[in-house]
């Protein structure tokens, strides 16, 4: 299959995000997921609009469906959706809502919004690919630190770790928004269950790239991407 050549969407993203939000004041970094998504789609994921239905593609599942502006902008920057779709977010005829719907948006692997569903779906996706001998695709799933409050995540964390599901990478964007925090750190919840983990600056593209490609054999991998607190 065709793989994604490294591309750089930095020049286009600010304008695309502005089309979605109408917000002239804030930089793209106002969105905690922007940098992770940019590095994933520019440099890591082997998926293009032409291979969006190819069984051999990498999967990216946005579990944290809230605030998908950066996600839609990155999808537009990479040609999955027309730029014009960004101008009518959540309008009556829009295919883009405040939470993404996989049946409405090309390139979107799961519909999400209710927190705590993406990781279980990602585990099932990784298992389904393995069962069909599709050993090249990797499954990435992005969560938020507050999303980890949902207990369903911990079912998936324990099981994926115990079974060494090594085609799975979870990314937790940590902007310190969990009401009760995570004493002892987020990564420890995963590593105690057998995951490998890298905790990096969620704005540093080189560090993100190294972490997002830093998985090891026989273990699912976690990337904690720290960004500034929501405040």
């Amino acid at each position: 299959m065709t793989t994604t050549l490294p591309t750089d969407s930095s020049a286009r993203l600010p304008g695309l995000i502005r089309r979605l939000t109408g917000d002239e004041k804030h930089a793209p970094s106002a969105h905690s997921t922007t940098d992770v998504l940019q590095v994933l789609y520019d440099r890591v994921l082997r998926v293009t609009p032409d291979t969006a239905d190819d069984p051999q593609r990498d999967r990216f599942l946005l579990s944290k469906g809230h605030g998908p502006a950066a996600y839609y902008a990155v999808l537009a920057a990479h040609g999955f959706i027309p730029d014009a779709w960004l101008d009518d977010l959540a309008g009556p005829a829009s295919r883009l809502g405040h939470h993404p719907d996989r049946l409405l948006v090309p390139g979107v692997e799961i519909g999400s919004g209710s927190l705590g569903h993406g990781l279980g779906l990602a585990v099932g996706t990784a298992l389904g690919l393995r069962a069909q001998g599709l050993l090249n695709p990797r499954v990435y799933v992005l969560l938020g630190d507050a999303e980890l409050d949902e207990g369903s995540n911990h079912e998936a964390i324990a099981y994926a770790g115990a079974t060494g599901l090594d085609s799975l990478t979870a990314i937790v964007v940590d902007n310190s928004s969990a009401s009760h925090g995570w004493a002892g750190g987020i990564a420890s919840r995963f590593t105690v269950n057998g995951w490998t983990a890298d905790t990096v600056d969620g704005r540093n593209h080189e560090a993100l790239y190294a972490a997002l490609t830093g998985h090891r054999p026989r273990h699912p991998h976690l990337v904690v991407a720290r960004t500034e607190s929501k405040g």
């Binding site: 279980g120 585990v123 099932g124 996706t125 069962a131 069909q132 079912e155 324990a158």
Partner: peptide, 23 residues
Amino acid sequence: VLNVGIREQLMIGVAGGLALTGL
């Protein structure tokens, strides 16, 4: 044949993921 343990939320999530891959 996948036993996820006593984790019914995950059981259905896994079923959804398997179906997304065509199983």
